[in-house]
Amino acid sequence: MRVAIAGAGAVGRSIARELLRSDHHVLLIERKADHVDPASVEAAEWIHADACELATLEGAGIESYDVVIAATGDDKANLVLSLLAKTEFGVDRVVARVNDPRNEWLFDASWGVDVAVSTPRMLASLVEEAVSVGDLVRLMTLRQGKANLVEITLPANTPLAGKPVRRITLPRDVALVTILRGGRVIVPEKDDPLEGGDELLFVTTVDVEDELREVLGLSQR
């Protein structure tokens, strides 16, 4: 996969290293000269230029990339790049970093953003996930806000203990993705039984989250 990352600060470089470990082709675009350090991510391709300029994106052949990641520390720049990548170059997947949670509402399809990643929101979700048992925690928004990755930890006294997955009738537009149990990651099969303390990861739409809580015997908000 070919991935272009705008912003070669600590965040952009970290993303690049992870992608390179998985054998993806990575391009880093950085406007600030003091952030251009090819030795820090040697396997990546580097361009010293402003990713918000059409000429930069044209010169980089951005239309040939599968994913563009707007990872600068400036929300305005991330939005402009996302819009250009999607509308001018037809990039299939655009991921944008949200620096200020107050701007999160802007990062949607109207600005070319497929996935918005808000570090403050993710950290808050992880805190909630660590302390919440018997409630639904949203971990990530997918598909321009049309679906969420959510986590539910079953309480120790759950009435679902011992019941196989096939006995759980999930609402429409809900998929059970993974069961986390102790140190195990379980891809759920229809005959796998549930246990108290299981962490269940679902992909679901917002409008059926209350139905999901009801099916799992959780209290309503």
Rank of each mutant, 00 (worst) to 15 (best):
G9F: 07
V11M: 14
G12I: 01
R13C: 11
R13K: 14
I15A: 09
I15F: 15
I15W: 10
A16P: 13
R17H: 14
R17E: 15
R17K: 15
L19N: 11
R21N: 11
R21V: 00
R21L: 08
S22V: 01
H25C: 02
H25Q: 10
V26K: 03
L27W: 06
L28T: 05
I29H: 12
R31M: 10
R31D: 12
R31A: 15
R31Q: 12
R31T: 13
K32G: 02
A33E: 15
D34N: 09
V36P: 06
V36D: 07
V36G: 02
V36E: 04
A39W: 11
A39C: 02
S40C: 00
V41S: 05
E42V: 10
E42N: 07
A43W: 13
A44C: 13
E45N: 06
E45A: 10
E45G: 11
E45F: 09
H48M: 07
A49L: 05
D50V: 07
A51P: 09
E53P: 11
E53C: 12
E53V: 06
E53S: 15
E53T: 08
E53A: 15
T56M: 05
L57Y: 05
L57V: 01
E58A: 14
E58K: 12
G59K: 14
G61H: 05
G61A: 07
I62A: 01
E63T: 08
Y65M: 00
D66L: 04
V67D: 01
I69H: 05
A70T: 10
A70K: 13
A71E: 06
A71Y: 12
T72N: 02
G73F: 04
D74M: 09
K76H: 08
K76T: 14
A77G: 14
N78H: 12
L79H: 05
L81M: 03
S82A: 14
K86Q: 12
T87H: 12
E88K: 09
F89H: 14
F89V: 03
G90T: 11
G90I: 11
V91Q: 03
D92Q: 13
R93N: 13
V94Q: 12
V94T: 13
V94E: 11
V95S: 08
V95G: 07
V95T: 11
V98C: 05
N99A: 01
P101W: 05
E104T: 02
D108H: 09
A109N: 01
W111F: 15
G112M: 03
D114T: 03
V115E: 04
A116N: 03
V117N: 01
V117F: 06
S118G: 03
T119M: 14
T119W: 11
P120D: 05
A124S: 13
S125Y: 10
